[in-house]
Write a protein that binds this DNA or RNA. Structure first.
Length: 707
DNA sequence: GAGCACTGC
């Protein structure tokens, strides 16, 4: 078991406790250091010192000084995110033109934390403290020393500076969420440390599963130390400690009493509704947050509660029921933040969005269905599916914690304690093991990681998924026979912040002379949906859609919408009138501008094909040839077969080609319900497939359909 | 005639 402090080094105050599991070190006890901060007002300094993380200030700085990697386990409210970067700055880690980085998984968090820290330090946001997210760089070269950014942006930065040389410390926050970007970043940072032993990492996580993260960085250090010993035997003993330290910081949450269902629940929507009514009847004032899986569940539960108010008013009056999910129009989303009027009780029925992305104040009761929608990827069929699945125990704890932000709360779990203990997994499967890997693979390739299959991940994706990704990239002409990036296509695809199939489509459009149009289509495909839909306006929105419908399919329809939007002067009234989502269109404009800049930079030709829609369809086929489908002969119900796997698929009813059923189509994505539905469909000529991907369809030349 | 958990570049 290693020691915590080095002989000859000043020992931090406080108690050092070795963890029984061996090798893991926790610090506890309190030790105050006088704040050397010269920033801000006394009141801000006082506030900062009251945060739980403050009493670990010296210990944290000591660990960062002596360990290459420090893992901080901190519950919400510990202050780690806002304070640690400031401690580092105060301790001199930003001296000599170096930067301190702190990453977040989400854009909103980056902005919020950066502005809070700027305020605490009494500086203007964008000067000493800045942030970078997609579309927004609020930093000043040579001025900004504390930089907050999404982990995705830091990954992009590595394409220009693979060793991230300008940073002295990188703090990866919310690492327990295990997003794809976080996992790639952690894998790459581990490699960087081998080349840059002076770089310090802080991995911050909300769960105690920090042990596995510690193991991940531990192995690297054993080998790095071995290397150092071989090279510089005289330096032995002066290097960094090989073992990542784990430091635990308590949070500021209130106690939440957990209640389990006594027996398994058959219908969690109904059970959630009954539980809400029970809380309303028996419990003192306080808002309720209900976790369900999706829009359907949420609307059903809201309806049941509304019915209850009607038929059984005396028990359920005083309830204000508010749905919450990301697809909800902005104005309705805002409603959940307004406090309930006096004497009323707010019930927010939400998806997972309220688990991490949004924080609601005033929640005292949480009702947890125990389920969420999760993405799963099947590398054999190359299809991603959304399925309702049980959440993890970590997720259940996070949901419960939402009840304890303002005062002690209660959580009602709609499953048994036995189920929680014996049937739920401790942590969710990392996203990287549930996703298509094409984007990851190309990103690593672009960073010069040749041995993709041997890459050291915090959690390895399946070999099947990796091989499938390599196959797809090879068929796109992005990788060559040696699995190296092709030039220029491979490098161009890697530069574009899009799925490789979309990127390929853009590159083809440059050659076909329709890049203006294809970039618009790519931008529309990268936002959730440009259409406004929902209960009660289906007929109107369908009619509005018909005004833009193109015989060639959805992609061309998008162009018509964009054209109309542009001609209206980008008017929100125009969007409203045509059942178009204005916010989505603003995003389309942003993405479009970014793509145009990138396209120019990588040497693509920006050109419009005016009204020649055939070249646009050809460009789509150049990226999406693998998604070609043929209408079954004599099919009366619109049954298609995929060319690649002869899978049975249907055109989605939201497509403008629904019921039109052209003979040959290409789809953008599949959604699986009782059937496989193709979303965003365009007509093609089958001869373009052989043109676009001769190698891919070579084996199918004998296919009578293609002759 | 059906449906989109949530992020990110």
């Amino acid at each position: 078991m290693s020691r915590f402090w080095k002989p000859g080094t000043e020992r931090p105050q406080g108690r050092v406790v070795d963890d029984e599991e061996g090798g893991v070190i926790f610090l506890s006890g309190s030790h105050h250091s006088s704040s050397s901060s010269g920033y801000g007002h006394a009141s801000i300094d006082k506030q900062r010192q009251r945060l739980p993380v403050f009493k670990y200030r010296t210990a944290i700085l000591y660990l960062v000084e002596t360990r290459a990697t420090t893992i901080i386990v901190g519950e919400t409210g510990s202050g780690k995110t806002t304070q640690i970067p400031q401690y580092l700055k105060e301790a001199g880690w930003a001296a000599g033109g170096r930067l301190i980085a702190c990453t977040q998984p989400r854009r909103l968090a980056v902005q919020a934390v950066a502005s809070r820290v700027a305020e605490e330090m009494g500086v203007k946001l964008g000067d000493e403290v800045g942030y970078t997210i997609r579309f927004e760089d609020v930093t000043k070269p040579n001025v900004t020393v504390l930089k907050f950014l999404t982990d995705g942006v830091l990954l992009r930065e590595m394409m220009d500076d693979p060793l991230l040389t300008k940073y002295s410390v990188i703090m990866v926050d919310e690492a327990h969420e295990r997003s794809i970007s976080t996992d790639i970043l952690l894998g790459l940072l581990k490699k960087i440390q081998r080349r840059r032993p002076e770089l310090r990492l802080i991995i911050s996580s909300a769960t105690i599963e920090a042990k596995s993260m510690s193991d991940f960085f531990q192995m690297r250090f054993s080998s790095a130390l071995a290397i150092r010993k071989r090279r510089e035997p005289e330096n032995e003993g002066h290097g960094l400690q090989v073992e990542p330290a784990i430091l635990s910081v308590e949070g500021r949450g209130f106690n939440v009493q957990i209640n389990y269902a006594e027996e398994a629940v058959q219908d969690y929507v109904q059970a959630a509704v009954s539980t809400v009514l029970l809380i309303h009847e028996r419990e003192p004032a306080g808002d309720v947050l209900v976790f369900l899986t999706g829009q359907d569940d949420i609307e059903a539960a809201a309806q049941l509660l509304a019915d209850e108010v009607h038929t059984n008013g005396k028990h359920s009056s005083g309830l204000i029921v508010l749905p919450l999910y990301s697809g909800l129009p902005r104005a309705e989303q805002e409603l959940v933040f307004s406090p309930a009027p006096r004497g009323k009780r707010k019930v927010v029925i939400s998806t997972n969005i309220a688990e991490t992305s949004l924080t609601l104040e005033g929640i005292v009761y949480v009702v947890d269905s125990g389920f969420s929608k999760q993405r799963f990827y099947n590398p054999l069929s190359d299809i991603e599916n959304l399925v309702v699945a049980p959440i993890s125990r970590a997720s259940a704890r996070q949901r419960a914690g939402r009840a304890g932000r303002v005062r002690p709360g209660k959580c009602y779990r709609l499953y048994t304690e036995e189920y929680f203990l014996n049937h739920m997994s401790n942590e969710a499967i990392p996203e990287i093991q549930r996703s298509n890997m094409v984007s990851c693979v190309i990103q690593l390739k672009a960073l010069g990681i040749d041995n993709i299959l041997g890459f050291d991940w915090p959690a390895s994706p399946s070999a099947e998924a990796m091989i499938r990704a390599l196959e797809v990239l090879y068929s796109l002409g992005v990788l060559d026979d040696d699995a190296k990036l092709t030039s220029p296509t491979g490098f161009q695809v890697a530069e574009l912040p899009l799925d490789p199939m979309v990127s390929k489509m853009i590159i083809a459009s440059s050659q076909l002379g329709c890049s203006e149009e294809i970039i618009t289509i790519a931008a529309v495909l990268s936002v959730q949906s440009i259409w406004i839909s929902g209960r009660g306006i289906q007929k109107e929105s369908d009619e509005a859609k018909l005004r833009f419908a193109a015989a060639e399919g959805d992609h061309i329809t998008f162009l018509n919408v964009y054209k109309g939007f542009h001609q209206s002067g980008k008017s929100s009234q125009w969007c409203h009138k045509n059942y178009i989502n204005y916010h989505a269109m603003r995003k389309v404009l942003e993405v479009r501008e970014q793509l145009k800049r990138t396209a120019k930079r990588i040497g693509l030709v920006l050109k419009s094909c005016e009204s020649d829609m055939q070249v646009v369809r050809k460009a789509v086929a150049a990226g999406y040839f693998a998604n070609a489908c043929h209408l079954e002969a004599y099919s009366h119900n619109g049954k298609y077969k995929t060319l690649r796997g002869s899978q049975e698929v249907y055109i989605h009813p939201s497509s403008v080609l629904f019921r039109v059923n052209p003979k040959w189509v290409i789809y953008n994505s599949l959604v699986s319900t009782d059937r496989q539905y193709m979303r965003n469909v365009i007509t093609i000529d089958p001869s373009w497939l052989m043109e676009a991907a001769p190698h891919f369809y070579q084996l199918q030349q004998s296919n009578p359909l293609l002759r």
